[in-house]
Amino acid sequence: MADYRVRVTLSQASQQKVHDLGLSLYVLKAVCTNSLGDPLIWTSTSSFLDTLEVSWQPVYSAYVSTGGLPSAAADVEIHEETIVPVQLGQRWQAPDRDKLFVGGTPGAVEICSDTPYSCGLAQSESGGQARPVCGLTLTAQGMVTVTPTQRILLMFSPDRLALGRVVREASGPALLVDAADAPDGLRELAFDPDAGWSTGTGPWPTWAQRVSGGQSVGTLLVAPC
C-alpha cells in the first residue's frame, strides 16, 4: 500500500521566526463530492524541528455527526460520533456500522441515511487516530458521494484552530500540494516566514499552488466531482 509524505524543511532562523510569530502549522485534505460542505482541520503542530513530515496511506473511514451542519457557521467544529472503516466503492447506510454494501461509485464512498447529518471521510495521519477531513451536508433520505484525493493544504497561521474546525479561508501563508504522482510518494518543501514557501530550484512545479492569507480555500479543498 502506497505511503504519501510531504516533508517541510525549516532553517534554524526560520524556526526562531515561526516561534516568535506564534505560528502553528495546520494541515487540511482535499476531496471532491456531490454535496455542500467545508474542509476541516485534519492535523496540526506548534512544535518545530529542522524537518516536519506529514504522512498518510489511502485508507479511509466514513463518519456521521449531529454536531451541526458545517454550512451553517464558520466557527463550527465537526467531530465524528459514529465512524466506520470503508473501502472505495462501498455504500454506508449510516449510522448502522454493519450496513456496508458493495456496488457503489468506483473510487468513491457513498453515505446515505434517513436522518440528516454532517458526514464525510476520515483518515489517519502518521498512523494515528482517523480524523474527519471534511464536513458535508447529508439530508434526510439523501446520499453523499465523496472521492478522496492525495492533495493536502499546509497553512502557517497565528490563529488557534482546533482539530475538526471548519476553515473557509486561509489565515496565513498556505500551499496546496498534490502528492499523487510524487516519486516514492514524497514531496519536499521549505518554508521561511519572510520568503514564504519554496519547492527547490527550477520552475515552480504544477503540483504546488500558493494560497495567500485571506484567500478562499473551500472550493480548493471541497470541490464538485
Results as ranks from 00 to 15, higher is better:
residue 120 G to P: 06
residue 188 E to R: 15
residue 18 V to E: 00
residue 115 T to D: 10
residue 19 H to G: 07
residue 204 W to T: 12
residue 8 V to Q: 06
residue 78 I to S: 15
residue 16 Q to V: 09
residue 203 P to Y: 03
residue 40 L to R: 07
residue 114 D to G: 11
residue 158 P to L: 13
residue 10 L to M: 15
residue 195 A to P: 00
residue 221 L to Y: 07
residue 137 T to P: 02
residue 159 D to V: 01
residue 181 D to C: 11
residue 90 Q to T: 09
residue 59 V to W: 03
residue 103 G to M: 06
residue 204 W to E: 10
residue 168 R to D: 04
residue 34 N to R: 06
residue 6 V to C: 12
residue 14 S to P: 01
residue 124 S to N: 08
residue 218 G to M: 07
residue 201 T to M: 13
residue 103 G to C: 03
residue 43 T to N: 10
residue 8 V to S: 07
residue 2 A to C: 02
residue 40 L to I: 07
residue 32 C to D: 10
residue 150 Q to P: 05
residue 1 M to F: 13
residue 213 G to H: 00
residue 180 A to R: 15
residue 85 P to K: 10
residue 135 G to V: 03
residue 92 W to V: 01
residue 150 Q to V: 08
residue 164 G to T: 09
residue 198 S to H: 12
residue 186 L to Q: 06
residue 107 G to C: 03
residue 217 V to P: 02
residue 221 L to C: 10
residue 173 P to Q: 13
residue 40 L to Y: 09
residue 167 V to C: 13
residue 186 L to N: 04
residue 123 Q to S: 10
residue 37 G to F: 03
residue 79 H to S: 14
residue 204 W to I: 02
residue 114 D to K: 09
residue 82 T to C: 09
residue 10 L to R: 09
residue 170 A to R: 01
residue 146 V to P: 02
residue 99 K to T: 02
residue 162 A to W: 04
residue 109 V to D: 01
residue 111 I to G: 00
residue 70 P to L: 03
residue 81 E to K: 09
residue 73 A to S: 14
residue 215 Q to T: 08
residue 153 L to P: 02
residue 79 H to I: 04
residue 109 V to A: 06
residue 75 D to I: 03
residue 33 T to F: 03
residue 60 Y to G: 10
residue 15 Q to Y: 02
residue 224 P to R: 15
residue 129 Q to E: 13
residue 24 S to D: 09
residue 10 L to N: 05
residue 154 L to F: 13
residue 194 D to K: 10
residue 1 M to S: 15
residue 126 S to G: 05
residue 210 R to M: 11
residue 71 S to R: 02
residue 28 L to N: 00
residue 78 I to E: 10
residue 137 T to G: 02
residue 220 L to M: 14
residue 177 V to Q: 06
residue 105 T to P: 00
residue 191 F to E: 04
residue 5 R to M: 14
residue 184 D to K: 08
residue 17 K to L: 14
residue 127 G to Y: 07
residue 60 Y to W: 15
residue 42 W to C: 11
residue 101 F to D: 08
residue 35 S to C: 13
residue 34 N to S: 11
residue 164 G to P: 06
residue 196 G to Y: 05
residue 151 R to P: 00
residue 132 P to R: 07
residue 176 L to M: 14
residue 47 S to V: 10
residue 200 G to Q: 09
residue 152 I to R: 09
residue 132 P to Y: 11
residue 74 A to T: 05
residue 182 A to N: 05
residue 21 L to Q: 14
residue 135 G to D: 03
residue 31 V to G: 08
residue 59 V to K: 14
residue 152 I to D: 02
residue 199 T to H: 07
residue 192 D to C: 12
residue 185 G to F: 07
residue 123 Q to K: 11
residue 86 V to G: 06
residue 159 D to T: 00
residue 63 Y to V: 05
residue 70 P to F: 06
residue 129 Q to C: 01
residue 185 G to L: 11
residue 25 L to M: 14
residue 152 I to C: 15
residue 68 G to C: 06
